[in-house]
């Protein structure tokens, strides 16, 4: 375990050390103090424990790392993640998991606006609520929300799947509730398990694309 104390060490040294590390190493980050770009560009199977709140883009573009933020995460946590696991024990700010292609993002608390915006294959499990415009233009992957969802959920969604247990303030254009078939119950059970959460998949509702905006039709022009 290599420790970086950000009261003394700078973020650049932390990231450089992580980039030069082989699989299996582990890092602890003390006094993160909301600093930005913590543990970005991880490119190995290694562990990073951030002991406190992180600023913007923590764990950005993670590839294979297991990164835990013991606290809140700022804007764009795990943005464009490719693989690996990012776990936020507190809340996440806007655009959590934005454009992420793969891996698993677990947020124990709430996520604010634009959670999973343009997601491209990542799995996101949020223990609490999510804010407005979440899963906007979501292309692929799964977004699980154990609490409530804000306005315009899944606007212009493509092939991503959304599971919400609580209330949905409103659905965005082309996003509709869908039947929970066996494969969806199984998929959701797997995601909840992976995120270390209890809960009955049958309590959730699935949302996805009505696919009416996939090719332009004049009757849908108000949705553009």
């Amino acid at each position: 375990m290599e420790t970086f104390d950000l009261k003394v060490d700078d973020v650049r040294a932390l990231n450089k050390a992580i980039h030069q590390s082989a699989n299996g190493r582990s890092f602890a980050v003390e006094h993160p103090g909301g600093k930005h770009s913590l543990a970005v560009g991880v490119n190995a199977s290694l562990d990073v424990e951030i002991n406190g709140h992180a600023g913007y883009y923590a764990a950005g573009m993670n590839q294979g790392g297991r990164i835990t933020i013991h606290g809140n995460a700022g804007v764009g946590v795990a943005e464009n993640m490719m693989s690996g696991i990012v776990h936020v024990t507190g809340d996440a700010s806007q655009s959590a998991g934005a454009t992420a292609h793969g891996g698993l993002l677990v947020i124990d608390g709430n996520a604010s606006a634009r959670c999973g915006i343009s997601m491209k294959g990542v799995d996101i499990v949020v223990g609490g609520n999510i804010g407005h415009m979440s899963a906007f233009m979501a292309q692929a992957g799964r977004l699980v929300v154990c609490g409530d969802a804000g306005e315009a959920l899944g606007d212009s969604i493509y092939e991503a799947r959304i599971y919400v247990k609580g209330k949905v303030a409103s659905l965005g254009a082309d996003c509709v509730a869908k039947e929970m078939r066996e494969e969806h119950l199984a998929e959701l059970a797997g995601l909840l398990h992976a995120a270390g959460r209890d809960g009955d998949p049958a309590d959730f509702t699935r949302y996805g694309s009505a696919r009416t905006l996939y090719n332009f039709h004049v009757d849908n022009s108000s949705a553009y």
Binding site: S37, G41, Y56
Partner: peptide, 29 residues
């Protein structure tokens, strides 16, 4: 075969104060 629409704003930053943080992230990576 679908019509692809791309967003006009970046999904995880707006304005120069956020852009500065985004550029720093790309530099760190």
């Amino acid at each position: 075969g679908i019509d692809q629409r791309s967003a006009c704003r970046h999904p995880d930053w707006t304005g120069p104060d956020d852009l500065e943080i985004k550029i720093a992230e790309l530099r760190e990576i």
